[in-house]
């Protein structure tokens, strides 16, 4: 029911003439009601529902100075107040959204949020690129190389890896550590160090540093 309400709001907001292929929003909701479970519509419906719950969580429950990020069914928040206040926040969130199942992990040890490594050093948040351990498993490497590097040349791969490093790393220390990872990965694939140095210089030059 909550998801259907969210869908109705969503359609009313984002479809200016309230029609899709000649069907009114009421018709669409009648077609969906009772048949969404297990259908390809389920996941988009869940994301539309989260789209509205995210706004409530951000506006009402989380301080403007904190970070709130969600990707699919995982969310990440920062918290600079007491643990007791954090537990009250979760109690309120659970009572307001009882249909959502909550599994909470802290970052006492670094974790990964999708492909971002997240942790803290004595309370200071850090982020970087997360590398799945299996990528370093030689037994799997040939298959994974094919998956990670389909029909691409090494220069594209390097540029993408460097862009990702800049986007994900919280500071220059993490960034330099990540460029080291990229370099090792390149050598592991049998390329020369010279290619890495050249690509890095070109990358810096492209971005004016």
């Amino acid at each position: 029911g909550e998801a259907i309400n969210a869908l109705e709001n969503f359609l009313n907001t984002y479809i200016p003439d309230h029609l899709i292929l000649g069907m009114t929003i009421d018709t669409i909701l009648q077609l969906i009601r009772g048949s969404a479970s297990g259908s390809p519509l389920t996941i988009p419906l869940v994301y539309i529902y989260f789209f509205y719950t995210d706004q409530i969580i951000m506006n009402d429950l989380i301080d403007k100075n904190e970070l709130f990020v969600r990707y699919r069914d995982e969310a990440f928040i920062t918290w600079n107040h007491s643990e007791q206040q954090l537990s009250s926040l979760f109690s309120i969130a659970k009572s307001r959204f009882p249909e959502v199942k909550w599994h909470i992990s802290s970052i006492d040890y670094p974790i990964h949020f999708v492909d971002i490594k997240v942790g803290h050093n004595t309370g200071h948040l850090f982020t970087g690129v997360y590398h799945q351990e299996m990528f370093y498993n030689d037994f799997l490497s040939s298959e994974l190389n094919q998956l990670q590097n389909p029909n691409e040349n090494i220069w594209n791969w390097l540029r993408k890896a460097l862009l990702k490093a800049v986007r994900y790393c919280c500071d220059s220390v993490m960034f330099h550590s990540e460029t080291g990872e990229i370099q090792r990965e390149l050598l592991r694939r049998g390329h020369s160090e010279h290619i890495f140095d050249e690509a890095l210089d070109e990358f810096y030059e492209d971005f004016g540093v």
Binding site: L163, V166, R167, D171, S172, F175, Y204, F207, G208, V209
Partner: peptide, 28 residues
């Protein structure tokens, strides 16, 4: 390397790309 400057320039690059993508999708 000035990392803050690099981040700033990559951020501008990302914003320009997102704006161009949005414009393309609106025109199509």
């Amino acid at each position: 390397v000035n990392y803050e400057k690099l981040r700033k320039h990559v951020s501008i690059y990302d914003k320009n790309r997102a704006a161009a993508k949005k414009e393309r999708s609106e025109n199509s």
